Amino acid sequence: MNVPDYGNSKGRFYHKNITKGEMRRLCTPITRAAGMAIFRNPCAGKDQDNLSQLFDVGAGLGRALTEELLHMLSAPPNCYAKQHSSDRWAEMKHDPAVLDPEICKPVREVIGGGKVTDILTNASV
């Protein structure tokens, strides 16, 4: 896997094929894949307002993880989600800085487009 090196980066993936739905009835096969990256936060322990380093981390990881995940799917993806968590030493603003500003563009480039939908309002953004 080609996860960019952000200081001890590690990537892990999960893949599952689902062929039975409710009541164990056969259903149209669904492939689920998930990827995660663990990396050293370059901003940890520093009080700073410029988090652009984390924007770059998000963009690099978004592209690398998506490219790997596409190889696990049997059809083009119809949705994706992102999640973040950090240890107790990280600033609350660090997680969104990795995921929000720059991650979606490389993900959409790798999957060949896609619209962004707000899951609370179901409106395109």
Rank of each mutant, 00 (worst) to 15 (best):
S52P: 00
N50R: 14
A37P: 01
G58M: 08
I38D: 09
A59P: 01
G58D: 03
A34V: 06
L65M: 15
R25D: 02
T31K: 14
G45D: 05
S86L: 04
S52T: 15
K20V: 03
W89A: 11
G60M: 05
R24Q: 14
L99Q: 07
T31I: 07
D100I: 08
E68D: 10
T31G: 08
H94E: 15
L65F: 01
S52L: 11
G21H: 12
A33G: 05
P77Q: 07
D95K: 11
Y80V: 02
E68L: 00
L69E: 01
D49S: 13
P96Y: 02
A64L: 03
T66G: 06
K20A: 07
Y14Q: 05
C79S: 14
P77M: 07
P76C: 06
V57Q: 05
N41G: 07
H94S: 14
I103N: 04
C79L: 14
K93Q: 12
R40F: 00
N41Q: 10
R25G: 04
F39I: 06
A90T: 08
F39Q: 06
Q83S: 08
R32L: 15
R32E: 10
V98D: 01
A81F: 13
L51R: 08
E22M: 06
V110G: 04
P42R: 11
K16S: 09
D47P: 01
D49H: 06
C43Q: 11
C104W: 02
F55S: 09
P96V: 01
D47V: 08
W89F: 12
W89G: 12
N41P: 05
S85V: 06
G58K: 08
F55L: 08
N50M: 06
A64N: 03
H15C: 10
Y80T: 04
T66Q: 10
Y14W: 15
I103L: 15
P96K: 11
L51Y: 01
H71Q: 13
R25L: 12
A97Y: 00
G45V: 05
T66L: 10
D47H: 09
M36A: 09
Q53S: 13
A75M: 13
M36R: 08
E22P: 02
Y80A: 13
A97P: 04
K46I: 10
L70D: 01
L26K: 14
I30G: 09
K16T: 04
R88N: 09
V57H: 03
I18Y: 10
D49K: 10
G21A: 04
R24D: 15
L51M: 09
K105R: 14
N41S: 14
P101G: 08
D56F: 08
A33Q: 05
P76D: 03
L61W: 03
L70S: 02
N78W: 05
A59Q: 10
I103Y: 01
D100R: 11
L26R: 12
P77N: 08
A59S: 15
D87C: 13
C43T: 06
I18W: 06
L51S: 04
